[in-house]
Amino acid sequence: MFKFFQSYFSNDLAIDLGTANTLIYVRGKGIVLDEPSVVAIRQDGGPNGKRVIQEVGLAAKQMLGRTPGNITAIRPMKDGVIADFTVTEQMLKHFIKRVLDSKLFSPSPRIIICVPCGSTQVERRAIRESALGAGASKVYLIEEPMAAAIGADLPISDATGSMVVDIGGGTTEVGVISLGGMVYAGSVRVGGDKFDEAIINYIRRNYGMLIGETTAELIKKTIGSAFPGSEVREMEVKGRNLAEGIPRSFTVSSNEILEALTDPLNSIVSAVKSALERTPPELGADIAEKGMVLTGGGALLRDLDRLLMEETGLPVIVAEDPLTCVVRGCGMALEQMEKLHSIFTTE
């Protein structure tokens, strides 16, 4: 009975405020929102010229790189943390408003929000403040590797080591977890964005063509791979020729993209290796038995698990539905908030 009332009145949220995508989990309902973290802002002219939010989420992402002068499409998160505080707060407010029913006396939600484990106190404070500004009554922070491990259904509370590698849009988080706590947490600011950037740079250098971020992301998703395979895929790409200044079309192959991605992939591999080096031997043995688990959108890069397998000699598995692992983990933490204390982080 009491539980019924509680579920009726509470509208607690778990948010994965990611560099690329923001996902929201509502207690008792599941994941209700999955939108790109992009905001389009329009500057009005005239006597009462105001800055207003034109679009948020998917619609704003489609505007990226295609905006006229008075509209700017912004990604307010960068490298896993807040780059533009005001816009992030407004974006969160916007998403929360869309997720929660607008009751007359709706209580302010409690929010669990995940932060990169490598973020500084200032960056965490910024995330907390922006969630409070967006209408939260209370904000709990959880480190991303912990959330990813919970979401991937790893035995985090057992006395056995579990290793999770969460490759997000802005950061790659490596965590070793045992007995409900983080034994090792490492973070490198390499993620999907760096992959896109590497592809843009490679194509400019080798083809003399300029492509946008959206095209680079499309290339990565279509033919990008992390390990040489037998099948070479090709893709036709359109961009602006730097010498002629005219849009041209050209073809890139998966092997070229593999070459382009070498640098950011090496950063991830070395982060994983450094985590393994610093893991206590008993937990290392557990990890050697079970392997490490990849989560996050970066885990969808073709053959990334194969690359890590070959580099480390350990089994690597990709979690189910890696894109939503972190928010599912946050959601499970939300459902059992009263029982789980050790997983939340302080500033």
Binding site: K29, I31, K50, I53, Q54, V56, R98
Partner: peptide, 24 residues
């Protein structure tokens, strides 16, 4: 097979328009 992960993502109302940025 993994247990059904979560409810499918609800389709929410399309993005609402202008939201003042500076003054709520």
């Amino acid at each position: 097979v993994a247990p059904a992960a979560t409810a499918p993502i609800q389709q929410l109302a399309p993005t609402m328009g202008e939201l003042p940025l500076a003054n709520g």
